[in-house]
Computed example of a mutant assay.
Amino acid sequence: MQQTQPSEETPVPAGAAGAVEVRAGQRVRVVAVEGSQVADLFAFTRGDLAEHLSAAHTRGHVNRLFPRVGEQFVTTARRPILTLVEDTSPGRHDMLVPACDPARYRALGHVGAHRSCAENLREALAPWGDPGLVPQPVNLFMDISVASDGELVWGVSPAGPGAAVTLRAELDCVVVVSACPQDLNVINGGAPGPLLVEVVPAER
């Protein structure tokens, strides 16, 4: 009887990020360990960081503002890089809001240093190189809606403890997941928490 290979687990502490190499056909599972935690998801093609998952290109590709199971995320070259294959959360994920950065926290009135998803990305991706500009991420478990007048409505992440999203890699890529450190608005319930990233072997 053929044995199933175990998944590789990468814990991501609150406010930090983790990076994993994923081969085409493998699956990446992102878990909101304690719930109510946004996960900024980035993906870069192996060997060429200039080609990466693009939220803007994906919106045009799927003709939707927010992702759902069965849909693909595409790169700046309009190639599928990840497919959303399973979601045990309430399904609220955002493709409108950029990664938080030091300027964002200053604008919110914070004085001094504060971790951010932009800086987390650069730190986690450093072994593979410098991405240059920070791409707009897919914000898993983030509840953003659009009011009738076009205003964005920011809600608390509805992901419960253990809620997970599973994505299948369509290209060899590096996936970076940041446990968003935002604590100056409601998205993480005021207290950022940890994530878990699992790389699951390709199905045969």
Rank of each mutant, 00 (worst) to 15 (best):
A50Y: 10
P137W: 01
G189W: 01
V33W: 04
E21Y: 08
R122Q: 10
L195K: 02
Q5F: 06
Q136H: 11
R59K: 15
S89E: 06
G150E: 14
H93N: 08
C117V: 02
R168D: 11
P181K: 04
V111K: 12
L53R: 02
E86V: 01
L196R: 15
A19P: 04
M95D: 12
E71D: 11
L121P: 02
V197N: 06
H57N: 15
V38K: 00
W154C: 08
P201E: 03
Q26Y: 03
S36R: 08
G162N: 10
T88Q: 07
V174T: 15
P201G: 09
L82P: 01
S148E: 15
A17T: 04
L195D: 11
F141L: 00
Q2L: 06
A191I: 10
A159V: 09
T4K: 03
I144Y: 10
A159N: 07
N188M: 02
S7R: 02
H110S: 04
L171H: 15
R23A: 14
A113W: 06
P135Q: 13
A56G: 15
A147L: 07
D40K: 00
R78M: 09
S7W: 00
T58A: 14
T45H: 10
V199G: 06
A32C: 11
A43S: 15
P181Y: 12
